[in-house]
């Protein structure tokens, strides 16, 4: 039972997007700060640090969760996935990312990483997710730019494509 002292840094190890990572953190360091400023993965954003906006959402052991409400030391040994781990290759986008681009599901892109992490989990857990399911999953995210309508379109289209029902059609 390791007791980690307040004023010292401690080794934290976990799996990030499929690769082992390690870094040092005081017990109080938030996972957001650890990902962004210790590991340099700045794709996970910070918008409120009290759990409401959803910008910091990452997958912890497969479940979307607020990185701002998680201490780095809490995820010792866990599997973390962030937006940096979504694309199949550096020059290719995932189906979900592709639909966001096609439907203008983002403007400033600040809320987007969190939203993608929530939707990615929903669509892989429930390929048949309904519009209502998607809304409920997205209710934990604030977007100030899009008014959500383009995000809903992108999500529904991604769901369709992931089920193999037709291609992305941009709203040209």
């Amino acid at each position: 039972m390791p007791r980690l002292g307040a004023d010292r840094r401690h080794e934290v190890r976990f799996t990030l997007n499929g690769r082992p990572v390690e870094g040092e953190a005081e017990p109080r360091m938030l996972l957001t700060d650890f990902l962004r400023h210790v590991l340099g993965r700045t794709g996970t954003h910070v918008g409120c640090e009290h759990g409401v906006c959803g910008a910091c959402t990452v997958q912890i052991d497969g479940a979307p969760a607020r990185a701002c409400l998680t201490l780095a030391v809490q995820v010792e040994g866990a599997e973390i996935r962030t937006v940096e781990g979504l694309a199949p290759a550096p020059d290719r986008l995932s189906v979900l990312q592709e639909s966001f681009r096609a439907h203008h599901g983002l403007q400033c892109g600040f809320c987007t990483p969190g939203i993608l992490m929530s939707l990615d989990e929903l669509l892989s857990r429930r390929p048949d997710a309904s519009e209502d399911d998607i809304r409920h999953q997205l209710s934990g995210h604030l977007c100030r730019c899009t008014g959500y309508a383009p995000i809903m379109k992108a999500a529904l289209d991604a769901a369709r494509r992931l089920r193999g029902e037709g291609e992305t059609a941009a709203d040209a």
């Binding site: 039972m1 390791p2 007791r3 980690l4 002292g5 307040a6 004023d7 005081e26 017990p27 109080r28 938030l30 700060d33 640090e49 009290h50 201490l71 030391v73 010792e76």
Partner: peptide, 13 residues
């Protein structure tokens, strides 16, 4: 908005 310092105990039992 950063937490104040505290010790952390990951209890196994």
């Amino acid at each position: 908005m950063k937490p104040p310092p505290f010790d952390y105990l990951r209890a196994d039992t």
